[in-house]
Structure formats: C-alpha cells, structure tokens
C-alpha cells in the first residue's frame, strides 16, 4: 500500500472505530430505548463518556475543529444526561482545552492579548446573556435551535476558506486607538510576520452574536471566532486560531459561571469528558501527520450534520 493509500486507510479506520464505539456503547443502546434511564451502572457511563471523549479529542484535532462543538450535539444525542448538564460539560471541555493551550500561544506571540481583550469584554457579556436564555428555554426549543445551529456550523465549516496572510492596506481608526497590531515568527515562512487589522467595529458586533450562541449552547466558538478574526478583521490565520482560543477562555469562563450557579454542572459528567478530551487531543496531535486530514474533516462534518439533524428531530419530538 502506498503512502496515500495508507493515510486514507488510517483515516477511515479511525472514523470506523469511532462510529463502532458509538454504536456498541451503552450510550447507543440507551438512545434507542427512550427515557426513563435503563439500569446501567453509573461507572459504565463514566467509562463510556471518558472513552468517547478520548476518541472525540483525537478526531477533533485531526479534523481541525474544536472539541466543544462536537461534544454537545453528539453527547446529548447518545448519552442519558440532560442537555443542561451536557452544555455545562461542553463549556468546561472547551474552557479547559483553551486554558491548557493558551500559555505557549501567548509566549510565542501567536495569540495577541490586546486583540483578544478588545473583543472579549462585550463577547463575554453576551455569553452570560446566552447562557441565561439557554437555561431558561424549554428543552424542545433548545434542541431545535441547537440542531439548526449545528447544521449551520456544518455548512460554514464545509464552505469557509481561510486566508493565511490577509493583506490590510490601512488599519481602521479603532484598531489604531486600541494599539491592535503585532509580529510573530512564522515557522512555515521562517521569518517574522507583522500584521494589523481593519473593520474592528464590525468584528466587535459579530463577537456579540458569537458569544451569545456559545453561552446558549455550551459550544466552544472557534468555528466562528477564527473566520471573524481572519476573514473580517484580516488577522493572519495562525494569529486568528491562537487568539480565538484565548477569547474562548474568557467567554467560556463567563458562561460557565452561569451554568455553575444554575446547578447545570455535574463533576460526574464534566470531569471524564475533560480528561478524555485532553488525552485524546494530545494523541490526535501526534497522529496528525499519519492520517488523511481532509478525509477525516469531511467525515466529521458529516457526523456533525447528522448530530444536528438528530437534535432537530428531537426538538420536533420525532
């Protein structure tokens, strides 16, 4: 088998393994039999959640998507936990991932503190509002809007094209006042790259919407942060990805506190998810060069769309 064939085989094997795990897990058995819960020992669920999150972490890295966005729709579809707790755990999964990735990105100058702080203040306030609205909404409305959002995210992920080094002819006034510019060492180009941004007010407005949705559904918001930083504000792709992670750590902190106060965080659900996802992410990063990332990304988008559709159907009571 040549290198290409081997990578394609590895990718498909990984996804098949993940799907099989999903189907064979007690979670899937439960999903077929509607509530009330079947009498499965609690620790079986804990192990299933850990193993599931571990594989989710692997494929999330390979597909280049945040674990949080995959976690909520899939776990709420296949595990017996109420979506309130899944959203709370989803926020904490995204938060812990962002916290552990943040330090090296800031040290290398890839994440920019001033760019993040300028967007995060208003986004964190809207994230709090989103969390409050999300926890007050009836369950079927949550499922319906989550399903529609996830389907929308699948389309964005399928169609969005990033720009590695956008050209900015003139930074806007607000970005000049806020001193938003920077320089980072680009490993690919082997040289320092300086950057600036434009359309700052438009970016701030978009972050209000992103923060609200992230808080409402407990999703990490990398899928939206990165295109806004990169395509709207004109930050280089690497800076956009790294700063997105940093903004996410502030917004998700704000929303997580609403979930904590509303009693929507159970350590029994949150901790195995965080631990599984973190270990999976580290292994996924090592497998990155060995599998066909494009194939995995398309399959993950399909999986995400299926989970979105399932949430939508649940919302309609089907």
């Amino acid at each position: 088998m040549n290198q290409r064939g081997y990578r394609a085989f590895s990718s498909i094997f990984l996804l098949t393994l993940f799907s099989a795990l999903l189907l064979l897990s007690p979670a899937a058995a439960f999903a077929v039999q509607a509530q009330p819960p079947v009498q499965t020992e609690w620790w079986v669920w804990e192990i299933a959640l850990f193993v599931f999150s571990f594989f989710l972490g692997i494929i999330a890295v390979i597909a280049g998507v945040g674990g949080g966005v995959l976690f909520v729709p899939i776990v709420s579809s296949f595990f017996p936990f109420h979506i309130d707790f899944v959203r709370g755990a989803g926020l904490l999964v995204a938060l812990s991932g962002a916290l552990s990735a943040g330090s090296p990105l800031l040290k290398k100058g890839l994440a920019n503190l001033k760019l993040a702080l300028s967007m995060a203040l208003i986004a964190s306030i809207s994230s709090i509002a989103g969390a409050m609205v999300g926890l007050a909404m009836p369950e079927n409305v949550v499922q319906l809007s989550l399903g529609a959002t996830i389907l929308g995210i699948s389309v964005i992920m399928l169609l969005s094209k990033n720009s590695a080094y956008p050209e900015i002819s003139e930074p806007d006034t607000l970005s000049k006042i806020l001193h938003i510019y920077g320089i980072y060492y680009d490993e690919q180009l082997k040289k320092d790259v300086s950057w600036q941004i434009h359309r700052t007010p438009v970016g701030i407005l978009l972050f209000i919407v992103i923060g609200f949705m992230a808080g409402m559904f407990g999703l990490g918001a990398g899928w939206a942060n990165v295109p806004v930083f990169n395509l709207v504000l004109g930050a280089p792709l690497r800076v956009s990805v790294a700063t997105s992670i940093f903004v996410l750590s502030i917004n998700d902190t704000a929303a997580a506190w609403v979930y904590l106060h509303k009693g929507a965080v159970l350590p029994l659900i949150a901790v195995p998810s965080i631990a599984g996802m973190m270990i999976g992410t580290k292994i996924g990063a090592r497998l990155l060069t060995k599998v066909h990332t494009r194939v995995v990304r398309k399959l993950v988008i399909t999986l995400l769309a299926a989970a979105g559709l399932r949430a939508l159907l649940k919302g309609f009571g089907i």
């Binding site: 812990s96 330090s103 800031l106 290398k108 100058g109 503190l113 965080i274």
Partner: peptide, 23 residues
C-alpha cells in the same frame, strides 16, 4: 519579547501554572 510584550508574558506564565494546577 519581540513577539510578546511583558504583560502578555506575565499572563502566559500565570496561566501555565494556574491551569496545570487546575487539571
């Protein structure tokens, strides 16, 4: 410090220790 100013580096250091402890 060419790529990250002193404030950013302080944040990164505190973040590393506090988040490691958190995990």
């Amino acid at each position: 410090e060419l790529h990250a100013n002193r404030v950013q580096l302080s944040y990164a250091t505190v973040l590393f220790w506090t988040s490691t402890l958190g995990i």
